[in-house]
Design a protein around this nucleic acid. Sequence first.
DNA 1: CGGGCCGTTTCATGTTGCGAAACCCCTGCG
DNA 2: CGCAGGGGTTTCGCAACATGAAACGGCCCG
Lengths: 270, 270
Amino acid sequence: MPKTPDDSYVVQPVEKALLVLAYVAECGHVVSLKSVSTVLGIPKTTAFRYLQTLTRAGFLSHDSRTDRYSGGPRLGAIARTNARIDSARELARPLMRDLTAEYDGTVNLAVKGDGSVVYLDVFEPPGGFRTKARSGDAHPLHSTALGKAILAFMPEEESLSYLSRPLTERTGRTLIDRAELIRQLRLVARRGYAMETGENEDGAMCVGVPILDERGYPLVALSVTLPLQRMSPSHAMKAGNRLVDAARSISARMAPAPATRAMAAALPGH
Amino acid sequence: MPKTPDDSYVVQPVEKALLVLAYVAECGHVVSLKSVSTVLGIPKTTAFRYLQTLTRAGFLSHDSRTDRYSGGPRLGAIARTNARIDSARELARPLMRDLTAEYDGTVNLAVKGDGSVVYLDVFEPPGGFRTKARSGDAHPLHSTALGKAILAFMPEEESLSYLSRPLTERTGRTLIDRAELIRQLRLVARRGYAMETGENEDGAMCVGVPILDERGYPLVALSVTLPLQRMSPSHAMKAGNRLVDAARSISARMAPAPATRAMAAALPGH
DNA sequence: CGGGCCGTTTCATGTTGCGAAACCCCTGCG
DNA sequence: CGCAGGGGTTTCGCAACATGAAACGGCCCG
């Protein structure tokens, strides 16, 4: 029985477990092992194992008093992260458009990835020079204004762990001296914006700021990139402060992560 | 290498696939097969299969142009359903408290399950008689005011499919005549509330109304249950209209299902 | 034109997922 | 008080199937 064009790479246990996850999470109420088994037509032994595994991984939660399953904390976490990023992205769009025109430069929005920034949106001015970064690309944290803005505002423990990894040299100017980087990050934290001059891409200079979520964590960052020669120190400072204002206005209106069902499920049942 | 008290029922392919799902969905940006494989330390062949399976199931989406994965539509659906139900539940709470005192009866909030209603919250008056229903219990659609309220407001095609299943007789009074049920549902749709007199539980009478989500679908329902002898027809009518108002006020303020990241991901990348 | 990076396909192997059946516990009922 | 029944948990033997090394192929970049 062929289902879709090509099943050959589908892992069956995973497929069936996802069926279980979808059923439990989408039905909006607690369910018993029995009902999973009968509704989905999966033998109860197998359903039992899937429920266990899904629960262990935090995708479901299990009330041992009533032996019922429901959506778990992980689903809430995913929804929350997505809501935060989506709303930041949405709120940033008009500001980015304005900034692109205002500075006639490239304006970037990026999220923090694992040891990198990943570009979400890149607004380019009509005529101007083009930067390398495209939506979806990843660049190092230590070589970009976006990354330095994020590093400077995350908990110190975390930033140090990133800095302890090998620091790749993107250009001749890339800072790979850890002590110097840490000094810079302290300055960034104080004045609110980060700068980068040809450290990530030759001939490009960039000013970046973090966008803090409701926990104060720099989940996203915003930056303007210009050709090196068009950016004077005073210009950069003005741009930095302008970006700080923009980021603050986004933070203030960002999704406040509403209480999730997963949390409600943690309360006593009756 | 023991991980938690008891791994014996954990299905390994599922566990690892969930690791992949968590990584991709939680990181908030598109990722490549390579990065999944290296970050999670899973051989790329295996990671490939998991990504395929997760994508097939709608938990991830795959941009074939750039070969990148991100959160899929199913995650949005789950978040939306939960948000709707949570907010209804939250908004209902104070009203339910009021109604409990006002009628000195049991007030129920339930979600539509597969062919049943599942009780979310049950408010009981201090002294009074107790009904059978507890939070988490499931009762048939056709024998409860909650269920009839829901049946009357769902698309006809769907309600007919439920009515075509065998109708269990809960008490001597349970309506199992389909034609008569359909006649009743039409009346319910017209006046806005459903009634039930000892059809689900002996000696109890119940008035229920649907709570419609933004699509007009009766996802949740609200009801008041009283001992049969304490409920006159005129009393029931007043209660019904009171409940209709309450439901409308909940519907109006219910979570409007914000645009999700999964939808945004469907837009062209750059 | 050539090298390397990354996604896809193949294939032989034995690990491990599977589900029938037995077991156990709790609840409701006579 | 004990019996029956419905769910959840555990056991166990077997073969299905997940696995990952290696080979392949396409695309980009130099």
